[in-house]
């Protein structure tokens, strides 16, 4: 997916630099042309649908933006109200079946979601160690992490 999106972008950049049409519609035309080329290529090689995957990725992007804003509001409230209400823990979270790249993406997403920060990865890459700000109940914090994980697997990793 990432490779294909990158291919699309590369085609758009090629279009831009060759046509010399450096305007907003020019960029859009380049992206659309690249998208069509990649889609036709996918049809020809019987890959799953490029368009639907791009849509799912876009939906994850919107979801990610909302949780980023929510996490910022949460930490802003914690900073601006007097006294602390955190109940921090360092938890371990299993990521056995992800490869290195996917683990990195998941770790970055975890760091930017509310109240969680990745501290370390175990040497064999099987566990993430996550610092949770609100983890009075351990299983609840793990459930919150796996919600993001599920969503990421379903909408971004599944192709």
């Amino acid at each position: 997916m990432i490779r294909r999106l990158g291919f699309d972008m590369a085609l758009a950049v090629l279009y831009l630099s060759w046509s010399g049409n450096h305007t907003w519609p020019g960029i859009l035309v380049g992206l659309v042309l690249g998208f069509i080329v990649v889609s036709v290529y996918d049809l020809g090689t019987a890959h799953p649908n490029h368009g639907r995957r791009a849509l799912r990725m876009l939906r994850f992007g919107v979801y990610f933006l909302t949780i980023l804003i929510r996490s910022n509001l949460q930490i802003a409230r914690e900073i601006m109200t007097p006294g602390f209400s955190q109940t921090p823990r360092i938890l371990r979270y299993p990521v056995d079946d992800l490869d290195d790249f996917q683990t990195t993406v998941l770790a970055n997403c975890i760091t930017l979601t509310p109240g969680t920060l990745v501290v370390d990865v175990s040497d064999d890459g099987g566990w993430l160690y996550v610092h949770c700000m609100y983890a009075l109940d351990r299983s609840e914090a793990i459930a919150g992490l796996s919600r993001l994980d599920e969503r990421l697997r379903r909408e971004v990793f599944s192709w």
Binding site: Q86, T87, P88, R89, I90, R92, W127, A135
Partner: peptide, 12 residues
């Protein structure tokens, strides 16, 4: 922080 509940990384 002294109110940290547990540290599973240090345990492991």
């Amino acid at each position: 922080w002294d109110r940290t509940l547990s540290d599973e990384l240090a345990e492991d």
